[in-house]
Amino acid sequence: MNLPALRLVEDRDRNRNGAPVSVRELSVAFGQNQVLDRLSLHIEPGEFVAIVGRSGCGKSTLLRAIMGLVQPGGGSIDVDLDAARLVFQEPRLLPWASVRENVAVGAPAGLDAAERDRLVDARLAEVGLADKAEQWPAALSGGQRQRVALARALISQPRLLALDEPLGALDALTRIEMQALVETVWTSEGFSALLVTHDVAEAVALADRVVVMEAGRIALDLPIAVPRPRRHGDAELAALEGLILDRLLGR
């Protein structure tokens, strides 16, 4: 297998740092509305899976069910929630807490203050906000707030990182920067990643595998065997993006 330079973590480390996810025959209904219909999905340790689909196809519900926020109506989900972290669509920072305190929300329990501060500083440096630790969230831009949310998710060294359209509200340039950041941390930490997005280009740029959902089921499961680092506008990626868009648009 071809291992590009960016892939710092060996595959055997991926198995240790990444947690597997197994979803079998999962069904979820809200009242009369069948949102997920006997859906099965397996994520290998350290794998980066992106889920795309139209609004209302059930992609966010699938992610929320995996994270234990939605009660399944049938089927099974096999995931270690203690090792999983979720990044929401909104930053959801505590406005009355400093950036430092917000990142510390995600820190493992039972650390002494000095150790926690050290971890927070390391994570803030990783997301490029080392100088913002004492700021209020209100003083940050939208992209910076989402970086703080990412640092908060990473501080406990999760083995599964679930991302629920985390870049949806950002402007185009900030998005591309954030995508690069997500890829960098995934590469260096080796966690499994599950990204829900409505942006097909984003899914193709980041994921090892893109899962296309339609009406609560998986319509397409497409490996993206393009070596990293990937370049925006790469022809191979564009072809894959076209393939997925055709499927979504029913052409």
């Binding site: 972290r85 979720l86 909104e90 807490a97």
Partner: peptide, 19 residues
């Protein structure tokens, strides 16, 4: 949404109230 975040990040009742 903040309360949900607190729960997902493992806050127990008292901590959820306090923070």
């Amino acid at each position: 949404q903040l309360i949900e975040m607190g729960r997902v990040y493992g806050m127990k009742r008292w901590e959820l109230f306090r923070r």
